[in-house]
Design a protein around this nucleic acid. Structure first.
Lengths: 192, 192
DNA sequence: CGTCTATTTGAATGTACTCAAAAGCGGTGG
DNA sequence: CCACCGCTTTTGAGTACATTCAAATAGACG
């Protein structure tokens, strides 16, 4: 149950067994069915979420009804609305499951406890956010410097597992293009 | 000299005078002339940089010679190449000054010392990166959901000081459009 | 004043979009 | 097992927006 998250954490910090079991005592397991929401617009996000198994997405719903995917999260990834989590303000986006999923939730109050009791976790999340920050910078660079085709190829090269399991229209919503455009673009690829 | 950075840090954590003076003892002041490089592609980024005064940019140089701006940094902002800083690998981008600037450098080795001596700084940078992460998510959402015109308006609304001091072509390089397109787009604005 | 760079403008091109419709695919119920 | 439904993907035709290339204008700096 906690093997994946233990590996995830010890990638950045060392933990004693008692520290880890204290950590796991703060977690709440949750099972999500496909299409079930973990967070809805207007709610306050009071947790960080670790994906044990499955696939989630965080997306913004435009006035025109368009969904724009901010991030995917599969096994071994963290997800959450950092904006709402940090500010305590209502979320402006949704998080839901693209398939049946198994997640572990860490409540904000528990996390503050954790920071206090095991300060190493402050380091863990510092490094985790620093790495996520780098990943977002890459995505921004891609979006301002590359064509839709290049961005698509980079995406499936960087995240092949996601490219496998996620429907095309979701990938289009992540790349910032229309599903029709992604379809056409893919048709052109073999010739090149 | 250190007033700005003190305010910056105490926005997230409380510091005693001795902690702060220890912190400042680790900083190296540096003066940059316009167009001077703080970091060049291929170098390893071994510092975090705080801007006391002036304006810097981090940009990527494409194979076609195009500059793509990853971030601006003005007074009271931090900048650095987190990718190179974290991994120890050569940087893939440049950081230079858009005007004469005054910066404070915190070397990686000093920072590790600092984390060890005053663990609160781990918390400071954790929060700082978390907030930066949120800002980048907003930028990504803008780039996948908005038109060039909307992105430009949001940019000058969000960062009016930068919009003031930075030449138009630099803003275009940040938005991911050509200078000609930004010029045309601006011409259209008054009619709306 | 002259040079260098930034900005603007024009005309032609290309890429992604809209709207609409057809084809494909998966799941459900008869 | 098959027929049907809903949703995704594909295809087509016309349109909108940003790009390219080129040239003119405007500004900044020495």
């Amino acid at each position: 149950m906690f093997d994946t998250i233990r590996t995830n954490i010890t990638r950045h910090i060392q933990l004693h067994d008692d520290e880890f079991s204290y950590f796991t005592s703060l977690l709440k397991a949750k099972r999500l069915r496909k299409k079930q929401f973990l967070l809805e617009e207007g709610e306050i996000c009071r947790f960080e979420c670790f994906v044990n198994e499955g696939c989630l997405r965080q997306y913004h719903l435009g006035d025109d009804g368009q969904e724009h995917i901010i991030q995917f999260a599969i096994t071994d990834w963290w997800i959450g609305d950092q904006y709402s989590f940090l500010t305590g303000l209502p979320s402006q986006c949704f998080i839901d499951a693209l398939e049946d999923s198994d997640v572990l939730l860490l409540e904000k109050s528990s996390l503050e406890q954790l920071y206090h009791t095991v300060p190493k976790f402050e380091r863990f999340f510092r490094i985790a956010f620093q790495k996520s920050y780098v990943a977002l910078q890459r995505r921004i660079l891609a979006s301002i410097s590359q064509s839709a085709e290049e961005r698509y190829l980079e995406f499936i090269r960087t995240y092949p597992e996601i490219g496998q399991k996620v429907p095309q229209r979701q990938i289009a919503a992540y790349l910032g293009i229309k599903p029709e455009s992604l379809s056409r673009l893919r048709k052109q690829l073999p010739r090149k």
